[in-house]
Amino acid sequence: MPDSFKTADQTYDAILKALHHLIEVVAKLRSPDGGCPWDLVQTPETLIPYVIEEAYEVVDAIKSGDQEAITEELGDLLLQVVLQAQIASESNHFSLQEVAQGITEKLIRRHPHVFGELEVSDPDEVRQNWEKIKAQEKGKTPEQTQLLTYLLKRYARSLPPLMAGMKISQKAASVGFEWDNVDGVWQKFSEELAEFKEALETEDKEHQQAELGDLLFVIINLARWYGLDANDALQETNLRFIKRLSLVESFVERPLSDFSLDELETMWRKAKATLREQGE
């Protein structure tokens, strides 16, 4: 057993015991005999939002550097893994054992420079070899996995839409799908904004949705041209909005719904000014 799995107050056996207890608790929550009504009605699909939410909360905790928060959020994410496996095992699809075995075998298979005889010289060579092995596993040739559409489909399938949009625009630009200058991007933005406004005048929700997507994609491209991260920008705006709203709530002792729009606007401007004075 690697020494890294041992600490002054924790042993490998203790880790296994804790994991086993978690598995038992989840199984009890899903038990038709005395289980939790909420857990019992969950499906793999209904749990998708929680998987995404917990992953983001892990990232937020890591960024904060708060070790207690990181521990808690990793636990919440681990719960989602165990719960998905528990639900699958109830239908005899797969079990947590197969999940663990699968990732272990994959790690060994994709690290022949650690578990085999292959020698590598740097991280870039590791990455290239990883992609080669990954292609073989999926029955693809290295050439097929290097096709632009193969990469873009992977981004669209596995990343949050805003991050996927940035990756897709970057990769497309790298092979020539690019404007000559930023003026062309601004022109495209004006076109898409006009088309979106036009679509809103119709009753066709599908068309409206499509035009909104086109407009957002152009905004992502504008961010790329100016060296900005659209995902981080939106996250900062979300947090800034919440901070201002929290300050507004601190100004009053009644629900915000009791106030008129003009009153809310006045308090909002006050909150912005207060935060500005505080350098936030």
Rank of each mutant, 00 (worst) to 15 (best):
M1Q: 13
M1E: 13
M1L: 12
M1G: 15
S4L: 12
T7A: 12
L22K: 10
I23F: 01
S31E: 11
D33K: 06
D39L: 07
E68F: 02
E73V: 01
L74K: 00
L77V: 04
L83A: 04
Q86L: 01
E98A: 03
I103F: 14
T104G: 13
P112F: 08
F115M: 09
D122A: 06
E125D: 13
K134I: 01
A135S: 04
T141Y: 02
E143S: 06
Q146H: 08
T149S: 14
T149C: 08
R157G: 08
Q170H: 07
V175N: 06
F177L: 15
E178K: 08
W179N: 11
W179S: 12
D180N: 15
D180G: 10
W186D: 06
W186K: 08
L193K: 07
K197Y: 11
E198T: 09
T202Y: 13
E203R: 13
D204T: 05
G213E: 01
A223F: 07
W225L: 04
L228I: 05
D232T: 14
D232L: 10
T237A: 10
T237R: 06
L245P: 00
L245R: 08
S246P: 02
E249Q: 13
S250L: 11
R254N: 09
L256K: 10
S257Y: 05
R269E: 14
G279C: 06
E280H: 09
